[in-house]
Design a protein around this nucleic acid. Structure first.
Lengths: 227, 227
DNA sequence: TCAATGCTTCGATTACGATCGAAGTATGAA
DNA sequence: TTCATACTTCGATCGTAATCGAAGCATTGA
C-alpha cells in the first residue's frame, strides 16, 4: 500500500477503450494525427484531443508539430515493450477484440512492433543472429552485437557508427505476444526493418500492423536468416 | 481498432487504485483474505469483495477456500511477470506512491517478486548461475538448467525431479523494476527462495515485499553466488 | 440449536470521467 | 485580408463504476 511504483495511473490510461485503441494504432510505428486517431478509435476530434493530452501527461506518447498537423507517436521504445507485454498477457487469456479474422495469420507471421519487426519472422531473425554468433546474449536480456555481427550489418548497408552515437540501446529484446518468444528491438531492430522496406523486400499494410513480404523479399530474408 | 489482443480490459482492472493496491500486496506472494486486502487497500470488505470478483473474472487472481476463509493469490506466474513489467515502466516515469522512504533501499536490495527473489540479490543470483555455466541462455529469454546446474541445486537440497513433474517452466526470466535487469523466476526461482527462508538465511518482512538476510545468511548467499 | 465470524449480494448514493457541441486559437492558402 | 483547415479549450450532459449500509449465506464452534 505504501511502497513500490504506482501502476494504477498507467493502468487507467490504458484502461479506457478509446485510448487503448489509439495506443494499439500507434504500435504500428507511424506517427498519426489526432484526426486520424479519432477516426480509428471511433470518437470525435475533441474527445481524441482530450485523451491525447492525458496520454502525453502520462508520458506514453509524444507529439511533434509540423505545419498545422500534430503528429503523435509512442514516446519511447519502453512504451512499446510494455504494451507488447500487456498484449501478450491479454492474448494468453483469449481476450481479443474480434473473432480471429483473416488478418490474424498475417499478423502472426510478420508485423510491426512500434518500430521493429515482430511475429514469426521477427523471432526467427533474432534466433538466427544468435545462432550465427552475431549477437550475444550477455545475461538475462542484455544483448550485444559481436564484431562479426557489426561487419554483417555494415555490409547490409546499415550505418553502425550512427547507431552508436545515439543514447538508445542498439540491441534489446522484446517479448512477442503471438510467439511468446523474444525478438530484436532497439535501434538496430528499427534499422533492420527500415532496411527491408527500403530494399523493397517488404511493405507495411495500410491501417494494420501487418508487414507483407514480396516473393523475392521473402526469399532473400529467409536466406539471410536461416533457421 | 479491429486487430490484436484487448489490452483495455486488463488496463482498467489494474487502473483502479484499490485494485492496484491489492495486486501490489499480492505481489508479496502470500495468499491473503478479503478482509486483509480490504484493510491494505483502505476500503470496506464489501467493496473489496466486489473488486476481487472482477479481478477473478479477469483471470488475474484465483481463490482457495479454506474453512471460513478465502485466500486470494495471483493466479499464475504470468500475472506477476506482467505486473513487474508495468511497475518497471511506472518506476522509470518516477511514479511512486510515496516519497521514497527508508524501506526503499531494502526493497531494491532484496524483495519477493510474487514467489521468487528479486532486487539486486535476485539479479546477482541469476548472473552468477549463468557465469558458472549452471544455467544456459538458449535464445532470447528461454533459460535452461545445465547438468552442472542440476547437480548443484540437488546438493543444496532441492528436489529437482519434483520440479520436472510440474507443467510449469522450471527456469524463466523476470524483468526487475529496480535493477532493469533479469532475475530468475519459474519453479526453480520459487524453490530457491523457499530454500533460503527454510535454511534461516532470510526472512520476509511483515506487510512488505522486502526480504531481510541474516548476517550469516548473507555471507552464505554471497559466497554461493559470487559476482 | 444458537451465536459468531467471514464473506457475498443487493440497493441506493455519489463522484468521476468520457463524450460532444460550440467557441476559440493557430497555421497555411488564396 | 479573408477563408479554410487542424486542433484545443470550455461547458454541459450523461453513464458507469466505486463506495458502503443493510441484509443474506455459509462455516465453525459451543
Amino acid at each position: 500500500m505504501k511502497e513500490g511504483p504506482d501502476i494504477a495511473l498507467i493502468g487507467s490510461l490504458i484502461g479506457d477503450p478509446a485510448r487503448a485503441n489509439m495506443l494499439t494504432a500507434l504500435m504500428g510505428g507511424q506517427a498519426l494525427t489526432p484526426t486520424e486517431l479519432a477516426g480509428l478509435a471511433g470518437i470525435t476530434l475533441q474527445t481524441a484531443s482530450s485523451h491525447l493530452a492525458k496520454l502525453e501527461a502520462g508520458g506514453l506518447v509524444a507529439q511533434r508539430k509540423q505545419g498545422r498537423h500534430r503528429y503523435y507517436a509512442l514516446s519511447e521504445d519502453e512504451v512499446g515493450l510494455m504494451l507488447e507485454s500487456l498484449m501478450g498477457f491479454a492474448a494468453s487469456r483469449g481476450l481479443t477484440r474480434h473473432r480471429p479474422g483473416p488478418k490474424d495469420p498475417a499478423l502472426r507471421k510478420a508485423r510491426v512492433c512500434y518500430n521493429h519487426l515482430a511475429g514469426d519472422y521477427g523471432v526467427r531473425m533474432l534466433d538466427s543472429l544468435i545462432a550465427a554468433g552475431e549477437i550475444e546474449v550477455a545475461s538475462g536480456d542484455d544483448l550485444a552485437l559481436t564484431d562479426a555481427g557489426r561487419r554483417r550489418v555494415e555490409v547490409l548497408g546499415i550505418d553502425y557508427a550512427a547507431l552508436q552515437k545515439s543514447r538508445r540501446p542498439i540491441c534489446r529484446t522484446c517479448l512477442d505476444w503471438s510467439e511468446r518468444r523474444s525478438h530484436l528491438a532497439g535501434s538496430l531492430g528499427e534499422a533492420l526493418l527500415a532496411l527491408f522496406i527500403d530494399k523493397g523486400w517488404a511493405k507495411r499494410e495500410k491501417d494494420s500492423r501487418a508487414v507483407r513480404f514480396t516473393a523475392t523479399g521473402e526469399k532473400a530474408f529467409l536466406e539471410l536468416f536461416p533457421r
